[in-house]
Amino acid sequence: MEIEGKVWKFGDNIDTDVIIPARFLNVSDKDILAQNCFADLRPDFGSTETTGDVIVGGSNFGCGSSREHAPLAIKSAGVAVVIAKSFARIFYRNAFNIGLPILESKEAAEAIEDGDTLSVDLVTGEITNKTKGGTYCASPIPDFMRSIIDAGGLVEYVKNK
């Protein structure tokens, strides 16, 4: 599956508190979470049409709190894929569980800049920067995580077993 989208670039150690600040955790409605995604760090994110966009982060993306509201807010904002140098453990797990595509690529995360347009093949992990040129290959998704994705998330995976 190939997607094409505009980049929202972030730095290292983007924690789940800045993805969705705690004051918005009094609801779990995904649309409200999406509106408040990156409320303090990138106030324009929630008010912009982000469907099909791509988030590119540095290392340790999604560190801190286990709040699943964070990947849920990103997914509900219509973000097609999150690319980062590396992901924090709980965020990584949560993203697969709820069906938010994520890819790890150090080279892509370093070279891509805010506002670039990318084309990403979610199956092969090939990332192409259409603005600046350059093609990168994300680390392959582990087989077990792939089986969760193929089932359509953890709930379906468990139901099928």
Binding site: E68, I90, R93, N94, F144
Partner: peptide
């Protein structure tokens, strides 16, 4: 260890975690 809500919901149903 900590996990997200989907993992926890599945554990409440099955008593197991990967």
């Amino acid at each position: 260890t900590g996990v997200g809500s989907t993992d926890l919901g599945v554990i409440m149903a099955t008593g197991e975690v990967w």
